[in-house]
């Protein structure tokens, strides 16, 4: 490395700085590409819901939870995260089809991921968390609570049962549950 004069040092440093800028730019372009072409977005729908009355609302009432095929053949699964269990504890979804997962909590902060997939969101009291995804592999996947929510946090998890599309048979009311199969 030449370091005889200040000019030489400056020149080397500037070259290196240019390389650093190129690296950072490349990373940003990759992210922008993912956003424009694959529509990658974080789970960011600022949709408020009062945690104090969550169990009194229609959408997140106990009997409305789980998977349901709705208008436009949209598969939506609603799950409540509460201390220290998910309700329902198992949801069934078809593979290779866009599924919308909607989560809410009546108490404290929770979060979920589904092992082996990119499904991941925090569940914050006051908001509906929403994830759109396509499950490609069939089988039972783990959906644990991944944010500390109290002393029972370690035992809080649910199952996502991904079934082949032709075996996904919702009932006449459009609902599908793990028990029914």
């Amino acid at each position: 490395m030449r370091a005889d004069t200040e000019q030489e040092i400056l020149k080397t440093e500037l070259w290196w700085t240019a390389l650093v800028i190129a690296i950072v730019t490349a990373i940003m372009l990759a992210i922008i590409y993912a956003g424009v072409v694959h529509h990658i977005n974080p789970p960011s729908n600022i949709e408020t819901i009062d945690p104090k009355t969550l169990h009194l609302t229609g959408e997140f009432t106990e009997s409305n939870l789980g998977t349901r095929v709705e208008a436009g053949d949209q598969v939506t699964s609603r799950v409540v995260a509460t201390q220290f269990a998910f309700q329902p504890q198992c949801i069934v979804v078809p593979s290779n089809r866009t599924v919308t997962l909607r989560f809410a909590t009546p108490d404290v902060i929770h979060g979920i991921l589904v092992t082996g997939t990119n499904v991941n969101t925090m569940i914050i009291p006051g908001y509906v968390s929403q994830v759109h995804t396509v499950f490609t592999k069939t089988g039972d996947l783990l959906m644990p609570c991944h944010e500390f929510c109290g002393l029972g946090h370690s035992q809080m998890w649910a199952t996502v049962r991904v079934v082949p599309e032709d075996q996904f048979r919702p009932g006449p009311d459009g609902r599908a549950s793990c028990d029914a199969r």
């Binding site: 950072v24 990373i27 940003m28 992210i31 956003g35 977005n41 974080p42 789970p43 960011s44 729908n45 600022i46 949709e47 979060g111 991941n120 969101t121 925090m122 569940i123 914050i124 006051g126 908001y127 509906v128 968390s129 929403q130």
Partner: peptide, 20 residues
């Protein structure tokens, strides 16, 4: 907070580019 529902995707993008 990337995985949080209470912040919008635009501000997440803004802070992400600063993070880079």
């Amino acid at each position: 907070l990337f995985m949080d529902p209470q912040q919008s995707s635009a501000f997440k993008f803004l802070q992400m580019s600063f993070t880079a």
